[in-house]
Design a protein around this nucleic acid. Structure first.
Lengths: 248, 248
DNA sequence: CGTCGTATTGAAGCGTCTCAACGTGAGTGG
DNA sequence: CCACTCACGTTGAGACGCTTCAATACGACG
């Protein structure tokens, strides 16, 4: 089921961020990929599993989460087209968390073996993927601060700005507006807040004309105010190409 | 200032965990290292800096943290002898957090250039260090759950069990006892709780004969109860040697 | 037109925070 | 050897942010 269009968001991101050469991009789009359309709330990989393939998200959103005993969930990260949410499974045998669709998705499965030969043949690609894994950790660090240190408004504002910034990189924003069909319950699972409280915070932000949330998306109406509330500083996303360390 | 004894905790951990060969271990202990004795609460690397060396912790504890505007701090991880807390700086140019001593420490500085040639010459070492970086991320994930989802007792119990498990790997525990000179204020910064509340939780655990905290260390008196409270599951530490994925 | 997932609202409870005071032990200098 | 200081731990009381429970509203969809 090879389908090279599936690689479009990944290639565009890698090219923009890492300035890969054509040969590298070709090697990626030549990977055998098994595309699937997945329903909402579908567990792609579960805690304890030992996957033999990675997931490339092509369309929609995926989150990673850990379940706690009492049925609760903590969402750890949210992924957008072009992301490989479980890239670490290439080197960390057992999954310590779940990978779940936020809504309907299109995702492609790429065998670990194929990825391993890719990184063996193409050092620049290996570098890019390694950088992706480290950015993953940088985002986790920021999430620890978010749920550990910030107020409810701040947490939600921060999450929204992170998603917004990352979606902007793949041109999925129009002005302050972006599509992001997350429920208030899921927002609560990501921020460590109850659904009820998420609702009240969103209402407050809406009333103050700071953030509009409706119809499977958000509109940032007052960006500077939202940034103020969130303490958002995009440095942790390590995106500016000038920020990349040389490999040797 | 080469001093190969400085590598002892690192080598012991790598050997035990990754089964490196003698040649690999020799290559590591041949690295030029600049040893320093550091005072308590000393910032080794600060947010925004672009270090050209990594820190190998030889004795004592180091934490990584992010500062927030209002003077608060969120501790992201706690490191023990044999750890290289800022290993990611080898590939992520700019620091997105601080690296700070918990108390007096002995630490060695290893130039990035030396580490880069090491990983170029020694694929097995490169593999081990990559695994270390991924475990780092796995610990961050668990911390997100800790501060986002758990009660105060659970957070503290979990942190203590994580430290305990990791110290056990380097033989720094005696029965349920281990030295860990953290203040209640720092415990609060790690768990997202106020100092006052940390104090009350520790008192409760002490009264119930579950966890004794005194004199720069802890004694786990009722391990099964502590595990129950903490929801601690060591799987996220990815330690069992059988858990390691093959590189190809 | 009923159903189901999601959003909204109200009210009561409680876990944790803040503030402010006090205790304690180690280290320091007179 | 005592007085002082300083960091850290402990205690009490009141405030508040957030949770929980439970009911209601809304909107998409078969």
């Amino acid at each position: 089921m090879g389908n090279s269009a599936a690689f479009a968001p990944l290639l565009s991101r890698l090219q923009k961020t890492y300035r890969l050469e054509a040969a590298d991009l070709d090697a990626i789009s030549g990977l055998p990929i098994n595309l699937k359309r997945l329903g909402p709330n579908h567990t792609i990989v579960a805690t304890g599993e030992r996957p033999s393939a990675c997931v490339l998200l092509v369309d929609g959103f995926i989150y990673r989460s850990k379940a706690s005993r009492n049925g609760g969930r903590q969402i750890l990260s949210i992924h957008q087209p072009g992301d490989i949410p479980d890239l670490q499974s290439l080197y960390l045998l057992t999954m310590d968390h779940d990978v779940i669709t936020l809504r309907e998705c299109v995702a492609g499965f790429i065998q670990h073996s194929a990825l391993r030969s890719l990184v063996r043949e193409r050092p620049k690609v290996a570098e890019a993927l390694r950088h992706d894994m480290l950015m993953d950790a940088a985002v986790f660090r920021e999430w620890i601060v978010n749920v550990g240190h910030r107020t409810a408004e701040s947490r939600i504002a921060h999450l929204i700005l992170e998603i917004y910034s990352r979606l902007a990189l793949i041109n999925r924003t129009k002005g302050g507006r972006f599509e992001f069909p997350i429920t208030q319950a899921q927002l609560g699972e990501a921020t460590g807040l109850s659904t009820v409280h998420v609702n009240r915070v969103l209402q407050r932000l809406r009333t103050q004309q700071i953030l509009e949330s409706r119809g499977g998306g958000f509109t940032i109406q007052n960006e500077s105010r939202l940034k103020e509330i969130s303490e958002f500083d995009p440095a942790y996303l390590h995106n500016a190409p000038t920020q990349f360390a040389q490999s040797d």
